[in-house]
């Protein structure tokens, strides 16, 4: 599903966030990307989301080499990826359901099907009773759930989340992880960046550890206990 080969990402200021990462992520995997701040987690996720392009190396998503795609083609590719951001990135002047509907509107969906899909996505994250509310009226955990609803409303085969539990207490963080687990159970590939996985019960999953822009460890968890 995602293949990186000797991927380097260097920013204009000269900082090298990734220094030759090679890895494959297959469909249906649940992958946790861990590492300290500045290890390159967010950069890796932005590359795997098609938000940024590598400076060198090869990166393909859904079999498409993103270095060869036009800006518009890359944007269309991103529609097939559900993105969850640590800072939620919600439109505060729109209602909960309008925020959740945004990817569908971008994809050109409308009418009854749009409403049904939005209602279903909100129901999956437990926000079906707050469809008309403003995101400003939601708690931090609810906002993150709305962000997840927006990510899955387009029924993507791949969901990428950057520190989705970063601002949440343990109770909310577990609830968010449960939502991801349920999607994984439905066959969706999940990639989550977390700087701290020690305190959370992880499902059977793959742990990619990053250090100074390189993969330092690539392991599997077999229990649902904390690692």
């Amino acid at each position: 599903m995602i293949a990186l080969n000797a991927v380097v990402k260097r920013y204009p200021d000269g900082h090298e966030a990734l220094r030759g990462v090679t890895l494959d992520i297959e469909g249906g995997e649940m992958v946790f990307v861990t590492g300290r701040s500045g290890a390159g987690k967010s950069t890796l996720l932005r590359l795997m989301s098609g938000i940024e392009r590598p400076t060198s190396g090869a990166l393909s998503i859904h079999g498409k080499d993103i270095t060869r795609l036009s800006t518009s083609a890359l944007a269309r590719l991103r529609r097939n990826i559900g993105l969850v951001f640590q800072d939620h990135l919600l439109l505060t002047d729109r209602s909960v359901e309008e925020n959740a509907a945004l990817p569908l509107r971008i994809a050109g969906l409308h009418g009854k099907e749009l409403k049904q899909r939005v209602a279903l996505a909100l129901e999956k994250v437990g926000l079906d009773g707050q469809a008309k509310a403003s995101p400003l009226a939601l708690s931090g955990g609810e906002r993150q759930r709305l962000c997840i609803a927006r990510a899955i409303v387009n029924r993507p085969r791949l969901v990428i989340a950057d520190e989705p539990t970063g601002h949440l207490d343990k109770g909310y963080a577990n609830a968010i992880l449960d939502i991801f687990k349920s999607f994984h159970g439905a066959g969706v590939t999940i990639i989550i960046a977390m700087h701290d996985t020690a305190s959370l019960p992880l499902p059977n999953s793959r742990i990619l550890s990053l250090e100074d822009g390189l993969v330092s460890a690539d392991s599997e968890t077999e229990s649902s206990e904390a690692v």
Partner: peptide
């Protein structure tokens, strides 16, 4: 700006 950034991230083309 914030709307543009968000829509850009979730798949809006420059034309959109």
């Amino acid at each position: 700006r914030s709307e543009i950034e968000i829509t850009h991230l979730i798949g809006a083309t420059p034309g959109y």
